[in-house]
Design a protein around this nucleic acid. Structure first.
Lengths: 221, 221
DNA sequence: GTCTATAGGAGGATAGAC
DNA sequence: GTCTATCCTCCTATAGAC
């Protein structure tokens, strides 16, 4: 976002090296911040991982909190390519969340990062506090929309409220991560999420058989 | 636990002052660790709140991590008086969790503490790592038992697995806390938890009308 | 674009007086 | 049981050379 100019210049090959370095720094910073959060992670540690001095590092990101926000932006760009929260099909969005959970479990660092940081950023003075407030607001409304679409298809079970379902979905994803990080064998995050969705949405598992679903919906209603 | 001797002496009035001081320190430490977690919280800050020097504080708790574990033990003693995780009635345990959520919302500090710390303690080198691993294991098996009891009454909806239901319950509680801390207006934790239980347990809301429940169960099954 | 050097500060912990 | 004084470690950030 903020460095689209830099990116353009990099494409022209002018500051290509700088761009590569920035990428390496972001990767290292993610690892460091993931273990123990923002405050516990040190610039020294990050700099070491990219074989650089602290001063060299601060040439690319003017201070620690700027670096943190850059890491978060960078991750958001990547994961928005995996999940389209505004898919026209509500159920498809939920399935994408399930896929995301499965994918994330293969890159533990990212889960650690967001799990640790979202708790740490609960404090209003934390540099990423606003980021997380906004992020949760956005995700909540997006998933609420998905549940609204599902309700419009008559596939929402019982008298579930779309907004509350969205809150519960996000809570489930976050909470599963904590348990999984503390003890990976305790939980299959993606499977647990799928089970939750099955309890909310009629025919969550069934894909192409829409007419059957419709028939079911009629019967139960 | 570890200081039952001290407590006994305090009752006899010998070291009463010390015991009061320890209590004050624990309260202050809870507040400080709650905001931003263990690493960000400083002994200096805690000492100031009880009008003491750092050295004075360290006379009562020999170092920082000992103090943290004492705070956690202390909280556990208190909250075990509120929720009996091994109640003979499974549904009653779930209702107690709902009450706990409602009660906790009135003491934000405690939620902050556990929410922040459980994420921070995800890192194996964290002084409270073992504490949280054990704690989650214990709570998980206790709640699994509750769901088993509920299943035995034929009140578990669908083909829900008791263990998975326990994992989901804990995840829900933890996840709701994050959203609530970031924006209290976004969520009614206790209500959201109750709604989740309603989706798992037949007649979760109904108390004294067991015969009606049984009749319902027959009808649906 | 990266380095060395260094300022400047906060935090944890110990020793010993009172 | 509490304090003062002190030490040491670790951190962020800046200035200026190369």
């Amino acid at each position: 976002m903020t460095d689209s100019n830099t990116a353009r210049r990099a494409q022209r090959g002018e500051y290509a090296k700088s761009e590569v370095t920035r990428g390496a720094i972001l990767d290292a910073a993610l690892e460091v911040f993931a273990q123990g959060g923002y405050r516990a992670g040190s610039l020294r540690d990050i700099a070491q991982r990219v074989n650089m001095s602290e001063a060299g590092l601060l040439h690319h990101f003017k201070n620690k909190s700027t670096l943190l926000l850059a890491v978060l932006d960078h991750r958001d760009e990547l994961s928005s390519k995996i999940v389209d929260l505004n898919d026209a099909d509500g159920v498809e969005t939920l399935r994408a969340l399930e896929r995301l959970a499965r994918y994330n479990a293969s890159i533990p660092g990212v889960i650690e990062l967001f799990c640790t940081l979202s708790a740490e950023a609960t404090s209003p003075s934390h540099p990423a506090h606003d980021y997380f407030v906004r992020r949760y607001q956005y995700v909540r409304t997006s998933i609420t929309d998905s549940f609204h679409k599902i309700a419009a298809e008559g596939r929402l079970i019982g008298d579930i409220d779309p907004y509350r379902a969205a809150v519960a979905t996000i809570a489930m994803m976050d909470g599963l991560q904590v348990q999984w990080l503390l003890d990976p064998s305790s939980t299959d995050m993606a499977e647990a999420l799928a089970e939750f969705f099955r309890g909310c949405v009629r025919g969550y598992d069934l894909d192409a058989l829409e007419h059957i679903l419709d028939a079911q919906a009629e019967g139960v209603a």
